[in-house]
Computed example of a mutant assay.
Amino acid sequence: MAKMVLLAAYVSIGGNDLSSYTRKGEVSVEVEDKDVTTYASLGWKEVLGGLKSGSLGLEFLQDVAATKIDSIMWPLLGTVVPFVVRLDQSAVSASNPEWSGNVLINGWNPIEGSVGDEASVSVEYPTSGAVTRAVA
Rank of each mutant, 00 (worst) to 15 (best):
N102P: 06
G78A: 04
L104D: 03
F83A: 01
S12Y: 05
K24N: 11
T37P: 04
I72Y: 07
I105R: 10
L77G: 09
N16W: 11
M1A: 15
V31E: 12
G101W: 05
P97N: 15
L42T: 05
K24H: 07
M1Q: 09
K24G: 14
E98N: 06
S90N: 11
S95V: 14
D33Y: 10
I13A: 03
M1Y: 10
S95T: 15
L51D: 07
L76K: 06
R86H: 05
E30Y: 13
W99K: 14
S100Y: 10
A65L: 08
D88N: 13
L76V: 01
V64E: 07
V11L: 09
V36L: 02
K52Y: 05
S53L: 02
A40Q: 12
A2V: 09
V29R: 03
G14Y: 10
V36A: 08
S128I: 08
G54K: 00
A91Y: 14
F60G: 05
A66P: 06
V11S: 04
D63L: 03
G78S: 01
S71I: 01
V31F: 05
N96R: 09
E46Q: 13
I72A: 03
A65G: 05
I72Q: 10
V36H: 10
D117R: 08
G50A: 06
G50C: 01
L58I: 03
V92D: 13
A94L: 14
L76T: 00
G43P: 02
S93I: 14
F83T: 09
S53K: 04
L6K: 09
F83K: 00
V115L: 13
L104K: 00
E118F: 15
A2G: 11
S55D: 03
L58H: 12
L76N: 04
V5M: 08
V131E: 08
Y39A: 11
D35T: 02
A9F: 04
V103D: 04
S71H: 14
P97L: 03
G14I: 06
K45M: 12
P75F: 01
T38F: 05
G113K: 12
N109V: 12
G129H: 01
K3T: 12
N16Y: 00
